[in-house]
Amino acid sequence: MNHLKQITQAKIDVRFYSRALIKIVFMVTDVFPENDTEGLSPLMRKKALGISSFLTHGTVKTDLDEQKQDFLTVMGELRDLLKLATIAQHLKYCSPSHLNDVRAGISNVIDRLDKLVILIGGFEK
């Protein structure tokens, strides 16, 4: 497979897994208590949607520096989502298996994003 096709496939893959992460987050937050005083459910959902949005916009940009900036933003958002999921499990809003589902979803996005970043030349100038 030539390099351009590899990049295109990597972009498709990372977008696919970011949408899968949205589904996971929505399923997990559905079991949160109705009296979610911390507001974790909407925060986690917003983070998951934002991650997918940044990836979608980043993968269609032609400027590599802009793409890389969006991808760096995504990495920070993934870290924040993991923090929120860990807090939710600590507060007993969800089970450890739910937290593991979110972690696996985040890991899948990171893995695909790493492959894409390597294909476009990494973060170095």
Rank of each mutant, 00 (worst) to 15 (best):
F16A: 15
I12D: 11
A10N: 04
L55T: 02
D36C: 08
F123E: 09
Q9I: 06
I7V: 13
L116V: 04
K5S: 12
I120V: 13
L113R: 02
K92N: 12
P33N: 04
I24S: 08
P33C: 03
A20M: 15
G50F: 05
C94D: 07
T56K: 14
L55R: 03
S97K: 12
F16T: 15
H98M: 14
L78Y: 04
L64N: 14
R112T: 13
K83F: 12
A10R: 02
Y17R: 09
K68H: 10
E124V: 12
S107M: 03
N108M: 02
G76R: 00
L55K: 04
H90D: 12
H57P: 11
F32S: 12
V14Q: 00
T56V: 09
L55W: 01
I110V: 14
D65V: 10
C94F: 01
F32P: 14
S107T: 10
I118T: 13
F54L: 14
M27W: 11
L82F: 08
Q9H: 06
T59Q: 05
G50Q: 05
H98K: 12
V117D: 01
A85C: 00
R45T: 07
M1L: 03
G105I: 00
G39H: 05
H98E: 15
N2M: 11
K5P: 10
D36K: 06
G39P: 12
I118S: 10
I24R: 04
H90Q: 11
K92E: 14
T86K: 08
A88N: 06
I12A: 09
L72T: 12
S53V: 11
